[in-house]
């Protein structure tokens, strides 16, 4: 319930922010280059190397045969992308009192400030990352300098890959090798898995190639599925076969690593072309 409220609240803030920006700028008749309403065509694609072999951070050689992603919405901002941010752990009462009394501090730097909402594509959809560029429904926005973006994962899947994704937000299959071990696998991540990292189900603060957007154009989201596997260690996964790959078991380390990878900001890259 709280999570839903948080999500709705954040979306509302985004929408309100954009609406306010639109309202504020719609009265500008002096020909300035910021604040004009624009249409943002939207494309999603796997990166150019999606089918190429890659090495994970756990030193496995992996080649993917499929990858798909569910999308609940895309939001673009003028804040710089996420850097590092850290909240303090919860402290027992005595420690909190000590902090108050003698000034011991456990505060944290704030590292991703989304800033002003500049654009959005709010339709739920899904994409086959091996199918080349796929057009998504048009989004809308205002002119301004775009710097970072948020991917909202959907509560219910929609779009062309909805059946294949079932209830998952990301799925992939392929083969992994290290030393003399080969593992044929398929794996999925659920929205609930991502919410362990991001309670709002958002992948927030990815890089949007900084650009001064001045007119209608196309936003391309390029997804890098190899990043999803950077923390996956297949060492304890049954080998499987190409005909019957092993399904990574939710809750086990390899599956947790995959979900953490799907939440990686660097797996998603946004760019604008007029």
């Amino acid at each position: 319930m709280t999570r839903s409220l948080n999500r709705v609240g954040r979306q509302l803030v985004s929408v309100l922010g954009m609406a306010l920006c639109c309202v504020a700028c719609s009265g500008d008749e002096k020909g300035t280059t910021t604040g004009k309403r624009i249409t943002l065509h939207t494309v999603v694609q796997g990166d150019a190397a999606v089918a190429e072999p890659f090495v994970t951070g756990t030193r496995w050689n992996v080649t993917l045969s499929s990858a798909a992603l569910a999308i609940g919405g895309l939001y673009y901002f003028d804040g710089t992308p996420a850097f590092v941010r850290l909240d303090p752990p919860r402290r027992p009462l005595l420690r909190r009192l000590e902090r108050l009394l003698i000034g011991v501090a456990y505060a944290h730097p704030q590292h991703y400030v989304a800033g002003n909402a500049l654009g959005q594509m709010t339709s739920s959809t899904s994409a086959d990352l091996f199918a080349g560029p796929s057009e998504l429904p048009d989004g809308e926005g205002v002119t301004g300098t775009y710097r970072s973006a948020r991917l909202l994962l959907p509560e219910r899947n929609a779009g062309p890959l909805a059946d294949e994704l079932e209830s998952h937000v990301a799925v992939a299959a392929g083969v992994a090798t290290r030393d003399d071990k080969t593992v044929y696998f398929r794996v999925h991540a659920d929205r609930a898995d991502i919410m362990k990292t991001s309670p709002t189900g958002e992948i927030d603060g990815s890089v949007f190639d900084e650009v001064a957007v001045e007119a209608d154009g196309t936003v391309t989201l390029t997804v890098k599925p190899s990043t999803w596997f950077n923390l996956v260690d297949f060492g304890e996964v049954e080998p499987g076969t190409s005909e019957a790959p092993t399904a990574l078991v939710p809750g086990e380390a390899a599956s947790i690593g995959f979900a953490l990878g799907v939440a990686q900001l660097s797996a998603y890259h946004y760019a604008y072309e007029p």
Binding site: R3, L86, D87, P88, P89, R90, Y112, P199, T200
Partner: peptide, 18 residues
Amino acid sequence: DHFFYDRLQGSAGSNIET
């Protein structure tokens, strides 16, 4: 103490502790 935390970003929700 920050060198030894188990998360690189703070949780947006109070259900996830560092």
